[in-house]
Design a protein around this nucleic acid. Sequence first.
DNA 1: AAGGCAGACAACCGCGTCTGG
DNA 2: GCCAGACGCGGTTGTCTGCCT
Length: 307
Amino acid sequence: MGRAPCCEKAHTNKGAWTKEEDQRLIDHIRQHGEGCWRSLPKAAGLLRCGKSCRLRWINYLRPDLKRGNFTQEEDELIIKLHSLLGNKWSLIAGRLPGRTDNEIKNYWNTHIKRKLISRGLDPQTHRPLNQTTTAAAAATPASRLDLRNRSSPSSAVFDHKTIKNNKFELLKHPKMEHEYYNYNIESEANCSTTTGSGTTTDEDQKQQNKYKCSDLNLDLSIGLEPFQSEPTRASSGNSAESRLQRIIGPCNSNNNHQFFGKVQSAAAAQAVCVCCQVGFQSSEACSNCQFTSNNGFYRFHRPALNP
DNA sequence: AAGGCAGACAACCGCGTCTGG
DNA sequence: GCCAGACGCGGTTGTCTGCCT
């Protein structure tokens, strides 16, 4: 029963890596590149499980890693990303060059959790602690955007079906295969919200509006399906970076926000790049987005503001 | 000085997803 | 379309280190 072990455990080392093992791994990857983790240990002369090699390389040996303390900016970015993505450490790490998911996860558990608690915020929901008992179940960040269902638009999970920020709602066009984001002009004016319970008090509402209207600019967009002109899965690598590129798009410079959602009618012209959905800056949101199509896929992008 | 404790972080494990045959 | 193998992710555990008593 159960899953077969990933390697022959009787002949593998466990625990801390020695300098010699590190050097062997580095040398091998320099020569042959990353990948084929299962066969790598044997090829590199290491008595280690392939997964262990991968982890060691990704979390510790990679030359592009930034060691050292997290900066205040990184702290705040992690908090913002976590409030949006939940425990999607790899996605969060993708927005912090030189940081690994493991590093961020550890840092979150040891530092940021406490920091948020000291601010009176629940680390999971990012809401005031006294609200979390009732609200947590309805809107945990982790479930708000389930990006693991990235390859299958029809299975994309957006749990309460409305992304309840001040401007956009996730709608389903009756003739469309996929859900899309609709720009809600009415709600822009008052940051209106809807909640699951329907029993919120005015004070609750104020708090929620405050929460949902926070001026957040993550420079982040999320698509339900990769843009077609992107490299296909088969032809592109499967590194965290390339996957991130496929999922989120190249948001690393010049606010080139993109939306990879597949939309199939002109009605979808009202669909909105999710970068603005999650990273809007008040009135700026979407006003600069351009809209082009390619093979049935519509692509939103904003021109560089300050090249 | 020694033991206990907590924090930090490296590493492991199990499972879900992806991919090629 | 199905299956097996490989990969990657997130949760958890183990170990080390520094501080406190």
